[in-house]
Design a protein around this nucleic acid. Structure first.
Lengths: 218, 218, 218, 218
DNA sequence: AATGAATGAGCATTCATTCAT
DNA sequence: CATGAATGAATGCTCATTCAT
């Protein structure tokens, strides 16, 4: 097996039982990753939690990396589905409402098992398989960019790619930080409201700043 | 040595030579952490790069964790110094300019060795309660909060703590993401401009949104 | 695995092959302990002598300590079997003969690999409360005590527990000392005779001492 | 420095201060050996407890072994002094009383820091320097043997060397065992009484056994 | 002499991975 | 296919000892 394929799943499970095993293993892996971090995760622990032998684990995943890669891929696939729906090209009548919906979707999405997401995105070694992930991330950015391009106009020229890039990072990290450090705020309308304000304020024509006196200064 | 002290430095170097050794080790550790990640960092590699024996490393740092802890502490100490300066209470005449300055400071600060910062902060939660670090983070938030409280008034009631929390996370992760993924943008006025816009837009009286038509919709 | 379990074996071997491995490792451990002492014994040396990989050793014994603990346990188990037989409650017609038999049994028992026994018992106090071992030692003492209580009467009141305690220690250390320092005496009738005399003299009614003139003084 | 000299003290301290330092180090070593066992004793710990630098320790003792060797030597020297006194050739009028005195002396002697004695005699590696120790032990045995030879006559021929050998081992191990496992008994007359009974019974003419019915059988 | 910084061989232990059954 | 026994390179860390200051 070439090095290139280290993080590719070993084979397609044909039978139903095999599929179930794969699912069990992935769930176990997710759990162990969350509770022990990437470094603390051992294949033995995953196999034990999944209730299968270490041999069986290696039957479906040729390495620890492959396990993480599979989880990453699935996570992004799901991200894409959720967002593609919200971001499907459509006429926008109320951008404010639209952004609020998008934020709500993102909060919901990033709020699902954020600890796992952090382990996957931050601690896991940048694996070869990440190509898939990068492609998906690129597609999400591109979707958001298209929606914005079709619905916004700025008084000054702006690098829309950068704007989208910043929006996504800012939102994601804010959601993660809140979920991890201030979990009591999840689900409060206040939280979604503030994040929407962050994005909406950012998208509002920047020219405004010069038309009025500095806003909000006492 | 108790378990509590796993991440505390082992002893104070008394001679000049020893101080130099400690510095060399820390520099080497930073380098190895950046190039190999936390997991990939071995104490042997650090010692070798530092040009000292593995024994010398353990003379001053009782564990790999202690090495990271020391770097984390220094990083936060430096963070505090930089920001305390910018955030020292003072009369604010031009909030816009003020925020731009703050953003510039943060960009500069977070932009220094961001890969190291990420490794450090990723591991921070696993490292025995670094009181110093937590205190410093709290102080930074508190500084920002005080500045904002003295200079802003909002039309609707807002949870200022949450606002500050979001600002800091959003800024930090945006800076890191740009530095790591779009390094060519660092130092461009465009980048600082966009980040300032993000924060300024967020702080602008939210009531505006209702007074005008949705801004910028085609 | 908790600290409590440091000296407990790691898992039960399920396959025949595994059982054989465990036996091989224990034999190798005994050998290395005898030739190198506890401190000089390295897990690597044990594994090598056993002809297994170091990993296999740790598959069954979580630590060097556990290896010693297992040997200790087996040794005491065997001790109990040997002695329980000799000490089983039974009518005693000839105490002298009885004691001689017991001494012979003990000489035989303690004479088997006494160097290993010393290493094991020297380390015993450092090994996490080996309940099994302590229980067995207590049972041996209790057996001896019962036999004596049923067959002896003393003219003066004596602390039987202390008597038994002294007998066992005195016998054991005398046997060990002879085996280690005067191996040529093992198996001679003279040796068993002297040890029997030691015990018999001790058990003989102490009142005798006052009835006769001091015996044997020239 | 040749390998032969590893356990020889490095130099004779000329000055008073140096002598005091040596004493301090030896006391510290004794303490650490008792509390941590031979394996657990580190030269650093000894130096720290003695309040001297590790360098100073090595100024006087070229190795850890030399430290232990010195303690052993002193211990035996002291043993010899105590016993030589008791065992000095002299007319014996009351053997019983004599033995009781001897036992009392031995109990006292072996009862002084028995844990240290055990570490020194059991756990410490058999060092080259032990020649000295063996010579001293031989002298003690010889002293006891002479005393006994001059004061005892047996009805049957006995190997007096073996008798002495057994007496010394039995006493020593009984005392150690009691001090370590039943410390509450130390100093009780009962304890000395029982040990005296052990030795006296052993030395009593063995012919007695045949003259009377088995003693003490119910 | 005294200090303590520096050394590095050596040890216990882990864990991803392979392979015989 | 499943099992779990076996592997061994690699790691974190200790500690007796040396040596520069």
């Amino acid at each position: 097996m070439s090095a290139r394929n280290r993080s590719a799943p070993r084979k397609r499970p044909r039978q139903e039982r095999a599929k179930a095993t794969v699912e069990t293993i992935l769930e176990a892996a997710a759990h162990v990753l969350v509770t022990s971090g990437y470094e603390g995760t051992t294949t033995k622990a995953v196999a034990e939690r999944a209730g299968v032998s270490i041999g069986s684990l290696y039957q479906y995943f040729p390495s620890k990396e492959a396990l993480v890669a599979m989880l990453l891929e699935r996570f992004h696939q799901r991200a894409l589905e959720v967002l593609a729906d919200k971001l499907a090209p459509h006429p926008i009548t109320d951008l404010e409402q639209e952004v609020r919906e998008l934020v709500r979707a993102l909060v919901e999405f990033y709020g699902v098992n954020p600890r796992l997401q952090r382990v996957l995105l931050e601690q896991a070694p940048r694996i070869g398989r990440l190509q898939v992930v990068q492609e998906i991330e690129a597609r999400v950015e591109s979707l958001v960019q298209i929606v914005l391009a079709q619905n916004l106009e700025f008084e000054r020229p702006r690098n829309l790619g950068l704007v989208v890039f910043i929006i996504i990072r800012a939102l994601r990290s804010a959601v993660w930080a809140v979920v991890v450090e201030r979990p009591e705020l999840i689900g409060t309308p206040e939280f979604v409201e503030e994040l929407s304000a962050l994005i909406l304020g950012y998208l509002r024509p920047q020219g405004d700043r010069r038309k009025h006196s500095t806003p909000g200064v006492k």
